[in-house]
């Protein structure tokens, strides 16, 4: 997993609420047996007309060249629905490092964190202000300090992140390395538990 420290980038505004993982990556594109290549089907049905023609829909943000960057900003309750980790893989594979919303669904959040994709929960107001920025505006995320800043208007907000998860992201560790280190404790637990 790649470490994250600070990121300054333009962003893609997806001003839609309740974006479920079926939208992020529809089930019919889950047939891969590796983690790669899901980015091309990210938001497939919002991005393209039907499967055969695959014409980009001009009114969808990911098809508008003025919007780009490593940060995806979305409306509240992002990532609800199916537990498919493919959603986090697709977002990462499309080049995003950070997703911002005012509310994340539980499983999506942990899936994102497990893949070095940083989910940042901001206040409703702050989210609104991000959406009000013009397309060249940048955001700066500082994971160490747990801050996010709208650079243009120098507006700063702190965000919460679990301290263990923060250490993992800053160092590029993953949970399995950590858990494997606890193996003898887990075996001891099993003995008293069984």
């Amino acid at each position: 997993m790649q470490a994250i420290k600070t990121i300054q980038s333009t962003f893609v505004p997806l001003n839609i609420e309740n974006v479920d993982t079926d939208q992020i990556i529809p089930a019919r594109f889950l047939k891969g047996t590796t983690k790669d290549g899901f980015g091309k089907n990210l938001f497939r049905d919002w991005r393209y007309t039907n499967d055969d023609e695959q014409k980009p829909k001009a009114n969808f943000v990911l098809n508008q060249t003025q919007y780009n960057g490593k940060i995806l900003v979305a409306g509240k309750n992002f990532g609800c629905g199916s537990s498919r980790e493919h959603a986090a893989w697709a977002i990462s594979d499309a080049g995003f490092k950070v997703v911002i919303s005012s509310f994340f669904a539980d499983i999506f959040k942990s899936n994102a964190l497990n893949n070095g994709l940083l989910p940042i929960t901001v206040s409703e107001n702050f989210l609104k202000e991000i959406f009000e920025q013009t397309n060249n505006a940048t955001l700066t995320v500082d994971l160490e300090k747990q801050t996010i800043c709208i650079d243009e208007i120098k507006k700063l907000e702190t965000f919460e992140i679990n301290s263990y998860k923060k250490t993992c992201l800053l160092n590029g560790y993953d949970d399995i390395d950590y858990l494997l280190g606890l193996k003898s404790e887990i075996e001891a637990f099993e003995k008293q538990y069984m």
Binding site: E85, S110, N114, I176, L179, L180, L182
Partner: peptide, 22 residues
């Protein structure tokens, strides 16, 4: 509860997951 594929891998490796208490 449902888990993502990274967690499936964790359970394969250690029969445990890491969860904050809801």
């Amino acid at each position: 509860f449902g888990i993502g594929t990274s967690e499936v891998e964790m359970v394969f490796a250690t029969q445990c997951v890491m969860q904050s208490k809801p």
